[in-house]
């Protein structure tokens, strides 16, 4: 497999992972591309599966740094929220955004290691590769993953409950 084939094969997944982990489309693009640049720069060789794990690990570390850089920008955007479009989006779009917002909030409530483990498992990585990306022993990944999923599940439940309450409240008023 040459570089172009490898890139076309792995980039979309890496980009998705970065977008989910960083919650920032610009960071996702920058980081996913930077990981590939480093792959070329350092002439990393190996099977596609190994290269894939390498890329995800590098991207995970880059996001850790990038997120700090962007924190200010996020704060700015939060303080100056982009105004919604004048025309109301259709219900299904609203609902989808709501679901996405809830998932995002639940994910953001976790610490970085939990988030990484959750998202890497979602991309189909083995415990060994996840362990390497977050810097723990392979043998503790099962415990950490179970804990992360439990925290995430609890957060989803709470956030869904809140939103339900809000809706009932809105309906009553």
């Amino acid at each position: 497999m040459n570089f172009d084939e490898l890139f076309d094969d792995l980039y979309p997944g890496l980009h998705r992972y970065c977008a989910r982990l960083s919650a920032d489309a610009d960071v996702a693009e920058d980081v996913a591309q930077e990981a590939f640049v480093r792959l070329l720069e350092r002439k990393v060789q190996g099977e596609p599966a190994r290269l894939r794990a390498w890329l995800f690990k590098v991207a995970t570390h880059l996001i850790r740094d990038q997120v700090k850089i962007r924190e200010n920008r996020w704060r700015l955007l939060e303080e100056n929220p982009v105004l919604p479009h004048a025309h109301a989006p259709p219900d299904e779009v609203v609902e989808r955004r709501e679901r996405e917002g809830m998932a995002r909030r639940a994910l953001d409530s976790l610490d970085e290691r939990d988030r990484t483990l959750l998202l890497m498992r979602e991309e189909g990585f083995a415990y060994r590769e996840m362990a390497e990306a977050v810097g723990v022993q392979s043998t503790s990944v099962g415990t950490l993953l179970a804990r992360a999923r439990r925290r995430f599940g609890k957060a989803v439940e709470e956030i869904e409950g809140e939103s339900l309450k809000e809706r009932i409240h809105e309906g009553a008023s």
Binding site: Y11, H15, A19, A103
Partner: peptide, 26 residues
Amino acid sequence: LAAIAGSALAALETRRPDVEAARWRV
């Protein structure tokens, strides 16, 4: 819990990347 995580994370939409432009840039 795995199923909950899977379906919640699937709701996180991401912009479809322009693979060709990204490859060039890299």
